[in-house]
Nucleic acid binder design. Structure first.
Lengths: 210, 210, 210, 210
DNA sequence: GATGAATGAGTATTCATTCAT
DNA sequence: CATGAATGAATACTCATTCAT
């Protein structure tokens, strides 16, 4: 009965936004960005279409918000001690995290892969150096470069495989693409891999790149 | 005055079909399947919308035709001696072919990756074990399995890295996903990699998996 | 400023639905189902094409809605005391009703005849025993059979024309087809018959079948 | 090998025209005028689309030709002695003919009913006093009026039912509409009536109107 | 006479977005 | 804050008809 405080309003707003984003992520991942209609999202979120636009100014902005939120979660989870340097333990930790997140947030990763490969969505939105794809505000690109630097640095200092023509940058490149290839295979396979297999692959990657 | 012969008609049809498929592949790859309109295709092919439907009964059938044609080209190109066995030389040959095709048919590979990841296109068309995705009649799946068998066989018999817990199947899996990850990176990067870099990566993969 | 109540929304919906159905009936009757375009209906109803689809999911559903509504009106009008039995007075009443409805809802009857005879509309929609053609939920067929039973019953018990080979079912059949033939003639004639002639025919039928 | 004579050419033309009309009647009757495509007709007649237009200048002209041909057959069949007068025997003969034709040319009658009731076909083509609907060149209307005159004349002179308020014109009207109603019922019913029932109805009509 | 490639105007339907209430 | 009616531009697809050969 008593009027809501500004604080309460803010909380309600946040809850609604979260609800909408959750529903939208679910649909975007499974049905695709284009095939998901605002009507569907609104209906499944139990709100009106108009209200959706009260929170997000467009369908694309909604997508951007989802990506930002999810990438932030990932980033926060990955950036363990934020000292910019990876010890061997941290590297293993990093890989384990990737595998865990792949499993736990399969939905989100599916979306990411789809968005990245879907022109007219990713490129129109995030291409051309527009830096709309952010991680808590930081452009994705910067995060990406930081990660690559850390990995090059790691591979420079690790002891294993110090062959003559050993190239840390190439090692990083192979490592990332192996991860990328596996991630895609994993994310797109519907229950193809059981947990045991997932674990074995993780160990194989550790064996090769740790 | 004299009417065209059936042969002439057949030639006209073939030429126009090829033209349409070329234009469509270009657009599907760059703009995406959904974002590509029949109007666009027709306009760029210099024909009317109606004519498109004289050759392909729907937009999806057009896509299927393009995929079949392209996969046939790829398959014919990859299936060197068709003895089902890979020697070390053949393995190198195989990898070199993959890299060459990646370069020569970048457009097509871009399309393939995008289609695979775009729900409501690949899945609706080719999902559910419908085996509509064929290579000159042979279902894609069969080709895929043959390739995997050959690779497992190869890794079983090769001499390098015969570590204690060496698992040919895992080796095959790592190899394929590395290729997959790299392919994706390569195909989606607009001129990121020059020919020299492409070559260096090829050699790196040879070094690790040959 | 205050939002519309659900009640208001419902009223708006009902009004618009009625408007669209009225306009569509008019056009379907005069121009035919196929020849009537959604554009025409929308333009004449003063609304946008899109709105039509907000109320009816397809052109065919619009037709079904019109038929259901109209048949319900007719049925409610015809089913006088619903005791399933026709006295002589009721029989006369029945015929008079048919003639009156023919006159008052000429538009609708024209549509009915046209739909029934137009393959690919009636048959696709209502054929195959799908019972989509309903009168307030009751399948048309049931109503039709009830009516025929009542008429046979009536002709069994009436006193006139009790010739030797008198067959109530045949009498019913002759009666219905006479009505049918006349209805078709009446409905398709643009102002051919004035009210006086209409009345004379009614009396003639009464003379023969009452 | 020898060049065809003009006579042979004419015969070939006639045969092709007949073939096309037969195929078209079949499709128009079963699928409807709008739903029947020129492509269908051409393919089923084993000719090209272009050739169709060599014989008939439009789809509507093809329909007009079919109707003219069929009505001529009916007319020739009905007009027994062409003295413009019906004796009792001739009247019975007439009714029997109607019933026989209904049975033998059910396909055609189905088309006729559908065409008559399908606006945008009949009306656009034949409405507005354009008299495009002909019987061997004679406008349909004239034939129709002749028939009605003959019937009125017949009912004037017949002996049965000479009640006080006997009106030959009304009798004719009742007779024609009974025939019309029954024809519609018969033509639209798929095998509802067996030959025996058909015969019984014929006798009933004779009993009432002869 | 005969062919079928080519056209283009027309059709139903979808959906992100706006806005009065 | 909240609603859902209303819009309109866009899209895939159809088909009678033309015409070069």
């Amino acid at each position: 009965m008593s009027p809501r405080t500004p604080q309460q309003f803010r909380e309600i707003r946040e809850e609604k936004k979260t609800l909408i984003m959750d529903v939208a992520l679910e649909h975007f991942s499974n049905v695709g960005f284009h095939a998901t209609t605002i009507n569907h999202i609104a209906r499944h979120a139990g709100i009106s279409k108009g209200l959706m636009y009260n929170y997000f100014s467009s369908k694309e902005e909604l997508l951007a918000a989802i990506l930002d939120r999810s990438l932030t979660e990932v980033y926060n989870d990955l950036d363990a001690d934020s000292d910019g340097h990876l010890s061997e333990d941290e590297f293993e930790h990093f890989i384990r995290k990737v595998f865990r997140l792949l499993h736990e947030k399969k939905q989100f990763w599916k979306l990411i892969f789809r968005i990245i490969l879907q022109p007219g969505v990713f490129e129109d939105m995030f291409g051309g150096g527009s830096d709309k794809l952010t991680v808590s505000g930081t452009p994705m690109k910067a995060f990406s470069e930081t990660m690559m630097s850390m990995l090059i640095d790691y591979f420079k200092n690790r002891k294993k495989y110090p062959g003559e023509d050993y190239d840390p940058m190439m090692e990083m490149f192979m490592f990332l693409n192996t991860i990328k290839g596996f991630s895609m295979t994993y994310v797109l396979s519907d229950d193809l891999y059981n947990d045991d297999y997932h674990e074995r692959i993780l160990n194989e990657i550790l064996k090769r790149y740790k």
